[in-house]
Amino acid sequence: MKKTYEEIRRNVLLSLFNGKKTINEISRDSGVNWKTVQRHLTYLKGIELVSEVFSSPYVRIFDLTEKAREKII
């Protein structure tokens, strides 16, 4: 069954709860397609639940913000 936006974003956030990750790692953890994860990360960044802690042409690393951690807990 197709996942809803909320389900996908929850999976992405839960994946990051265990530590910083790349898009690839989040995709593997959450079972969500790479491109889809990337799009949802952009949204989550926009609402300050996720931050991009490192960015280079080679790798992008994301982490939860404090706001997100408080919400999850």
């Binding site: 790349t22 690839n24 790692e25 042409p57 080679y58």
Partner: peptide, 21 residues
């Protein structure tokens, strides 16, 4: 050698991912 050395700033993302992991 890193993907940076091989491609001079134009990396293959999949290789970069494997290298990073």
């Amino acid at each position: 050698a890193t993907e940076f050395d091989r491609t001079g700033g134009n990396p293959n993302q999949a290789i970069s991912q494997i290298e990073y992991e």
